[in-house]
């Protein structure tokens, strides 16, 4: 190790202040972390199928797993635009694997906003990283976006009224704007916690293991 890695890091960023020229290695880095992000959150999602008891935990847990992945990724960001690229490729993948156009656009937008936050923190601020992930973590809410925008079209089926009063009532309460907004708040809180937790995991594991 060089005697003083921090000065060397600054010298590096000073010479090329986060230019937009992504090297091949940057691209492969985005790719591996995007895949880890997708696979890790998918595995957590599958836990829900195995035991419905944990359904309520899934979205917060996904936000936490995502937080660990994204925060480790952010420590390896060397050029501007890497988080935006991350958002775009994750959104593209979800679009292929079943997601609404609206949700995927949402993820791209969140990636951009997160990149701006990161930029404001000069790409090295811990809290900027946490807030950037908090914003990006809202991507776990994007699958519910369409329900907010066009809920009747999604759920009103022709035999809707045959299903009885209980059904209509349940759908009215469950998918009302306040309930969905509450869900959004839960996701937001979870992704903030995910960011904080991810940052803690960085210190507890990856820094000590020499991986961050």
């Amino acid at each position: 190790m060089s005697a003083n890695p921090s000065t060397q890091g600054q010298a590096e960023t000073g010479a090329r202040p986060f230019s937009l020229r992504l090297s091949a290695r940057d691209l492969l880095r985005v790719a591996i972390f995007a895949v880890i992000f997708i696979v890790a959150t998918y595995v957590i999602g599958m836990l829900g199928i195995i035991s419905p008891l944990v359904w309520l935990l899934i979205v917060p847990l996904q936000a936490i797993v995502g937080g660990v992945t994204v925060l480790l990724f952010l420590t390896r960001v060397r050029h501007a635009g890497m988080l935006t690229l991350f958002g775009v490729v994750v959104a593209m993948f979800y679009l292929v694997g079943g997601n609404t156009l609206l949700s995927s656009t949402g993820i791209v937008g969140l990636g951009l906003v997160a990149e701006l936050i990161l930029w404001a923190g000069r790409y090295r601020s811990k809290w900027a990283m946490i807030w950037a992930y908090t914003v990006f973590g809202l991507s776990f809410f994007t699958p519910f976006l369409p329900l907010l925008v066009d809920r009747t079209a999604y759920l009103a089926s022709s035999n809707f009224t045959d299903m009885g009063k209980a059904y209509v009532h349940a759908s009215d309460t469950l998918l009302s704007v306040p309930v969905i907004s509450l869900l959004a708040c839960i996701v937001l809180a979870s992704s903030f916690l995910g960011g904080v937790f991810g940052s803690a995991i960085l210190g507890k594991h990856f820094v000590r293991a020499g991986l961050a």
């Binding site: 492969l28 880890i36 195995i50 035991s51 660990v68 992945t69 480790l72």
Partner: peptide, 28 residues
Amino acid sequence: GAGGLLRHPVLSVERFTVPMIAASLRAS
């Protein structure tokens, strides 16, 4: 196991995520 996951959800997730990320990075 569902039991462990319910009792220590965050710890369970940590035990999965850390080795999974470390092993994936190495494999890549």
